[in-house]
Simulated scan of single mutants.
Amino acid sequence: MFIVMFEFVVKEGFEEQFLASWPKATQGIYLFKGSLGSRLHRDKSGAYIAYAQWPSEETYRKAADIEMSAEYELHRQNMRDSLNLKSTRTLHEMEVEIDYLHRREFEV
């Protein structure tokens, strides 16, 4: 599994647009481009940090060449329009070494 972490820098006054468009843009990336999903976080300083999972680095790299439906491309464009793209950056690209993230309780 391949993981990419982003720091999104939202333009002043565009937080609502960003938060409305991010889930739909992410859903489109999942449906059309093969991601395994993503989580959006907000750190204590107010920065938006996203953690995206991909089945492989190859799938992640090829995703840039895959177009989504017009509806999802519009959500993606709305998200991009809400960002300061010069300051938005990729924080990390990494392989999963050990995966112990679960949605159910652990048996002890």
Rank of each mutant, 00 (worst) to 15 (best):
4 V>Y: 03
5 M>W: 02
5 M>R: 05
6 F>P: 05
6 F>V: 10
6 F>E: 10
6 F>T: 11
9 V>W: 00
14 F>E: 14
17 Q>E: 13
17 Q>Y: 03
17 Q>A: 12
17 Q>L: 11
18 F>E: 00
18 F>H: 00
18 F>L: 00
18 F>S: 00
20 A>F: 02
22 W>E: 01
23 P>K: 01
23 P>N: 04
23 P>Y: 03
24 K>N: 09
24 K>M: 08
28 G>S: 01
30 Y>N: 06
32 F>T: 03
33 K>C: 10
33 K>R: 15
34 G>E: 00
36 L>M: 05
39 R>H: 07
39 R>F: 07
40 L>K: 03
40 L>M: 08
40 L>T: 02
41 H>Q: 11
41 H>D: 12
41 H>L: 14
42 R>D: 11
45 S>L: 10
45 S>V: 06
47 A>W: 06
47 A>R: 15
48 Y>I: 07
49 I>C: 04
50 A>I: 02
51 Y>P: 00
52 A>E: 08
52 A>I: 04
54 W>I: 01
54 W>H: 00
55 P>C: 03
55 P>A: 02
57 E>W: 02
57 E>D: 02
58 E>K: 13
59 T>P: 03
59 T>Q: 07
61 R>V: 13
61 R>A: 13
61 R>W: 07
61 R>P: 07
62 K>P: 05
63 A>F: 06
64 A>S: 14
65 D>F: 11
66 I>V: 14
66 I>C: 09
66 I>F: 09
67 E>A: 13
67 E>H: 12
70 A>N: 10
71 E>K: 11
72 Y>L: 02
78 N>S: 14
79 M>Y: 01
79 M>C: 04
80 R>N: 08
81 D>Q: 14
81 D>M: 14
81 D>N: 15
83 L>S: 01
83 L>Y: 01
86 K>S: 10
86 K>I: 05
86 K>F: 05
87 S>D: 10
87 S>G: 03
89 R>G: 09
89 R>V: 13
90 T>L: 15
93 E>F: 06
93 E>H: 11
94 M>S: 08
95 E>Q: 09
95 E>D: 11
100 Y>P: 04
101 L>F: 14
101 L>V: 15
101 L>Y: 14
102 H>G: 14
102 H>M: 14
104 R>H: 12
104 R>P: 01
104 R>G: 11
105 E>F: 09
105 E>G: 10
106 F>I: 15
106 F>C: 13
107 E>S: 14
107 E>H: 13
